[in-house]
Each structure stands twice: as C-alpha cells, then as structure tokens.
C-alpha cells in the first residue's frame, strides 16, 4: 500500500511538473508585455529618439578571369540534341560525333569545349547539373572513339543560354543540346 501511495505522490509531482512546464510556455510572451511597459515609460520620459541607420552598400567589382590561351571558334560542328530530362546520346547524332573525333585525332593543336544546355522548363540548378551530364555523355562518347580526355573540356550552361525563346516543343528541342567550341592554341 505504501508503495502505491509513493507511486501516486511521485505521479502527482510528475503531473504538476509537466503541467507547469506546459503552462509556463506562454510566459515567453511576458517579455513582450514587459517591453511594452518599458516602451511606455520610455515614451513618458521622452527618452532619446531611436536613430535609424543602415549600412551603405558600396559597389563590389567582380574581377573577371582572363582566359585568352585559346582562340574560340564556333559553328564548325552541328549541335547534338537530347530528350527531355535525358542525357543519352541519340543514334542520329553519332555520325556528327564521329566526324568531331576524327578532327581531334588528326589535329594536335586543337582542343574541344563541349557546352551542355537545357530547355527552360526545369529549374536553374537542376538544369545546370543536367547540362553537365549531357556534356559529359558527349565527352565520354568521344573518348570511346579514341579521343584523349585531356583534349576535351566541358561546361554546363543549363537553361542560361537558350538558342530559342518561344514556349514550344520545337523550340525546347533546339535548346536541349550539346554545343561545340573548337579551341585553338594562341601565342606560345
């Protein structure tokens, strides 16, 4: 019996403990009431006014990276295209890639920059990753045709540089592309 009594008393304490904690939470609101009081007093005593300030945002100039080691040449090769949200190479584009591989294998002094692009329907960051996968799929395919990885660079532009800006499937299809830039070594 004593045990039951002790258990009940302990239980009683636990309940009060919990309950008090529960109803104590609104106390966090009390400071707001308290601040009201102090604000009222402040007003009454005509305290010094609150000075409103703000940090001035001065301009920051971005230092652009200068490349210039290569002269860029576009338009030598056709773009290759991809299905929506996909990064596999289509059979129809394989002849184009073969001719690119042949040129790179023949000519020692040129490199290839592969740009990955997407249509506008996705969101910027995911599209940038998708463009990365597209450029890499092309790079890997060219690698399988014997082109050294060192002769190829990739960059993704996601949806940032559309060729076509209408909201039609024809247009979106044009934008889902890998674009080729031939880099010719300058100077040196």
């Amino acid at each position: 019996m004593k045990k039951i009594l002790i258990v009940l008393i302990v239980l009683g304490f636990v309940v009060t403990g919990c309950a008090q904690r529960k109803i104590a939470t609104p106390e966090t609101k009390q400071p707001s009431a308290a601040t009201q009081e102090t604000q009222k007093k402040e007003g009454a005593e005509a305290k010094a006014p609150e000075k409103i300030t703000e940090q001035k945002l001065s301009q920051v100039e971005s230092k652009e990276l200068v490349t210039g080691r290569y002269a860029e040449e576009e338009g030598a090769f056709k773009d290759v295209h991809f299905d929506y949200d996909k990064y596999d190479i289509k059979d129809v584009d394989k002849p184009t890639l073969k001719s690119i591989a042949e040129l790179l294998l023949k000519n020692k002094f040129i490199k290839l920059l592969i740009e990955g692009h997407c249509d506008e329907r996705g969101t910027n960051e995911y599209n940038l990753a998708l463009g990365d996968r597209r450029a890499k799929a092309v790079r890997d395919y060219l690698h399988s045709l014997g082109v050294q990885s060192a002769k190829m660079d990739i960059i993704s532009y996601g949806e940032e540089k559309p060729l076509c800006t209408e909201k039609t499937e024809v247009c979106w299809q044009k934008n889902r592309r890998a674009h080729f830039v031939v880099l010719k070594e300058t100077g040196k």
Binding site: Q39, K40, E42, A46, E50, K51
Partner: peptide, 11 residues
C-alpha cells in the same frame, strides 16, 4: 489609452 509613444530620427 496610449500604449506606445516613441520618437525616431533618420537621414
């Protein structure tokens, strides 16, 4: 009654 009176200064 008045529940807040306050003065501010700004550029």
């Amino acid at each position: 009654k008045e529940i807040l009176k306050k003065e501010y200064k700004a550029d």
